[in-house]
Design a binder for these strands. Structure first.
Lengths: 156, 156
DNA sequence: TTTAACTTGACAAAGTATATAGACTTTGTT
DNA sequence: AACAAAGTCTATATACTTTGTCAAGTTAAA
């Protein structure tokens, strides 16, 4: 698994929209690309592409025209970190032969000593990122101002 | 973490040399590039480069000239899977700001909610691959002929 | 009518992945 | 001394990915 800027930007954008959703108790108001771009320091045109991907995958909704923009399409509780990483940066698995989202058969599979190891790595990664929702992340962000973040992460 | 062909080839070559070391109870005999290339189905000239890297990093030794070749430079017990992955395919961490081997500072570090998560992922991956030695792998390979591999992996 | 998202397509610099080619050096054998 | 076998070193090639930028229009909502 590698987190590229694309993935990082996507996560931060969604985190921004999630925070707003929670603060305003709903997805009625829309954030514009420019607003997100400035707040999160993401190149505007790049962000355009990223939000479009997030929209096509059903994580955000958009409204065109004046007062338009983006809002989150589901409760942040129901969007997991792993979902966004997989969408933007590809499969979590270190190698395709153990991937659930991008499996590719390998000739040596049955006799390969490494395969079960890659599978364990895959499970370990999934076990973390598929159990962290964007609601978690928003809570962690507000908690960061008060107490150590480390404790919170390990308490999930 | 992504395992590329380079990393995969390196692991398989080292596994080949480890098996020979264990079988022959020492590193006295040398395996030639051609031999490894054929046995493990690795492009010859690519393997050449890979073995050179492994040599420069101190994992294998070589002998030039006729009857030369490669042999493992340490006990397979003391070489961990993680060592080879890091050497050939780069850091295990999903992002540079939590890497121990390739750390890069990020401006947002102290306030970043994601950092501790990437750190957990990093620890999870390291926890697996840094606890599997090439002796383990050789044992797993011979065990595969008899019983299910799955049990063995989870027993480490 | 204006604003802002949507669509499409092209372009480009930098880096990574996956090799291949060729010349050179060292060693053992004849 | 000559030669063949084997590792060493450097360069090159091709394709793909990353990280964007630019332009030129289309559609929808206030």
């Amino acid at each position: 698994m590698k987190i590229t800027f694309k993935g990082d930007y996507a996560i931060k954008s969604l985190l921004y929209l999630s925070a707003r959703y929670i603060r305003e108790r709903g997805a009625e108001t829309y954030s514009q690309i420019q607003e997100i771009s400035k707040d999160q320091d993401i190149p505007l045109k790049f962000l355009e592409q990223i939000l479009l991907s997030l929209k096509n995958a059903g994580f955000v909704r958009s409204l065109r025209g004046k007062n338009g923009g983006y809002t989150i399409a589901r409760d942040p509780e129901d969007i997991k970190l792993g979902d966004i990483i997989r969408l933007m940066d590809g499969p979590l698995s270190p190698i395709a032969c153990v991937s659930k989202s991008a499996y590719q058969k390998c000739d040596f599979e049955p006799r390969c000593v490494l395969r079960p190891i890659w599978a364990r790595v895959n499970d370990a990664i999934s076990g973390i990122v598929d159990n962290i929702s964007f609601r978690h992340l928003v809570e962690m962000e507000s908690d960061m101002k008060k107490k150590s973040i480390e404790d919170f992460v390990y308490q999930i």
